[in-house]
Design a protein around this nucleic acid. Sequence first.
DNA 1: GTCTATAGCAAGATAGAC
DNA 2: GTCTATCTTGCTATAGAC
Lengths: 185, 185
Amino acid sequence: MVRPRTSDTKDRIRAVALELFAEQGVQRTSLRQIAERLGLTKPALYYHFSSREELVRSLIQPLVDDVESFLARVEAEEDVDPRTLLAGYYDLYLRHRRITALVAREPDVLGYLDFAARVADWRLRLIALLAGPDPSLEDRARAVVAIGGLADCTLVFIGMPPEELRSAALNAACAALGPLLEKRS
Amino acid sequence: MVRPRTSDTKDRIRAVALELFAEQGVQRTSLRQIAERLGLTKPALYYHFSSREELVRSLIQPLVDDVESFLARVEAEEDVDPRTLLAGYYDLYLRHRRITALVAREPDVLGYLDFAARVADWRLRLIALLAGPDPSLEDRARAVVAIGGLADCTLVFIGMPPEELRSAALNAACAALGPLLEKRS
DNA sequence: GTCTATAGCAAGATAGAC
DNA sequence: GTCTATCTTGCTATAGAC
């Protein structure tokens, strides 16, 4: 029997919290509700998480880390193919779909955690990767439409055939890039 | 002196509420804060708005009404030019920029008002207008990228030259539509 | 139309027993 | 690791005087 990295209860708390957050939104879900659905009491939650904020953060952290390392990896490459970049971003969003759905529903939760500054930077870095340094407003708009539209697709088309959806979303996002698809730094 | 449609105080409350909502988010702003900044007391707010929810609703209602009437007007036309449709949608978003910014930050607020059902319908109707009846997944993705990306542009590029931004955003969104730009029902 | 005062409640969080 | 009991704070909302 391998020692689990986190306790069983801790994971159950996270699972139930995620469930309730998806039903009601993060901000409108209380610790009391989470405890009740678990069949525990509020103090029990505080044994595992030092605050409500920490519980929320522990759910979002994996997404944040994944985005950061994805960006770092891509930025280290010499030549970035736009479609490959967008595909990686799409897969990232899809892999964390339950969390990205929460964040899309209440982006503000990223603000009241300490993620605000990091997240604000992501779009700028993605734009730079797609449109190069000193991009025109037109090129920046193309990048924003591609990035934002792609993220929307992962959330809107729940239940669609994954492979077909993936290529459909990427085709649309790449089309938005227009001339940026060919221009290489 | 023309009789004002709403009282001066009512408008001041709305203005201050909007201000605080923009600073802190809708859900994390209390009536106490609004009253304090106004130099009034909480009960004074209740004289003008029967509940916190009604205050929020009264701010969002004009946007909802405008979107509904925009969609109805466009749906009544025989032949809808995609770029014209997107331009109208863009202008709508821009005209209500302060409110669309709030909603983008906490889309969930649309859910706990009674707007959820109506709003859920908007995207479907826009997709139908852009991609026609019985669209392929690919075409629906193109419509979603165009619509969502366009909305993002109104929020991301605050302070940019309006006319240049408008055409840049529309160019990108229309590019995402690809073949849908030409196909007419 | 605005006030003081307060009801009524639920939230996050802690103390301390087991 | 989980409990009972409780603290503190803040909220929406109302009663009733002016």
